[in-house]
Amino acid sequence: MIRVEFLTKSFGKLDVLKDISTEIKDGEVIAIIGPSGSGKSTFLRCLNLLEVPTRGRVYIDEIEVTDPKVDIQKVRQNVGMVFQHFNLFPHKTVLQNLTYAPVCVKGLSKQAAEAKAMELLERVGLEEKADVFPSRLSGGQKQRVAIVRALAMEPAYMLFDEPTSALDPEMVKEVLDVMKNLAKTGITMAIVTHEMGFARDVADRVLFLDSGTVAEDAPPDVFFSTPKSARAQQFLEKVL
């Protein structure tokens, strides 16, 4: 379980997040949506401390990650992350991208890591790309590799930061399909996305962020049909 208490993040004088408190239960899939600049990405990045919160606490599995004494690298092994711009390691092949962290961080043997990596690549239909470098892949393929790279660490949590925003339209579906299948496996997911259809189909809960606060927190059917806040109504009118 991820628990967030009174999370505030400021960049200089700008308060990007204001006193956010929420919980993400085990196995839950939450979609974080909202207008640009509302703090969605910052919120997600505060969960694994890529951004250090200005105030407030974040607990993952009851470990307070905002405690400076906590071994954050250890916690991160259990929290995978997928980025908008993939961030694959360009000097490593697809297979090496997948095996690097399991071998170097978890101490898995090379053979075990490779076997696991091939299994994951098969799952996303990219086993033939094992030995190519990322520069030879399409955007959709890169993002599928990035997802399985995170999964290779067998995390309990997965964070997605606008995973389809940098993709050509025709590649969005292949990535969303992978995420849909992943959601069925019972892994806990937090997804910042602009894909409203996907959020409605896959999420258990929608967090609607507006200027640094959670303006709405509801199941997707409720949120999309009868949004309470005026801001959410406006937003949905524009995007749907």
């Binding site: 992350m81 690097y100 962290a101 170097c104 961080v105």
Partner: peptide
């Protein structure tokens, strides 16, 4: 790219390993 560092961090890679295996090889190129 800063994303390289973040990707390594989120995989739990410690700083010295990240420098040696991820950042420096790309820098040297």
């Amino acid at each position: 790219d800063k994303g390289q560092r973040e990707a390594a961090q989120t995989l739990g890679v410690k700083y010295p390993m990240m420098m040696k295996d991820i950042i420096l090889p790309q820098a040297f190129k």
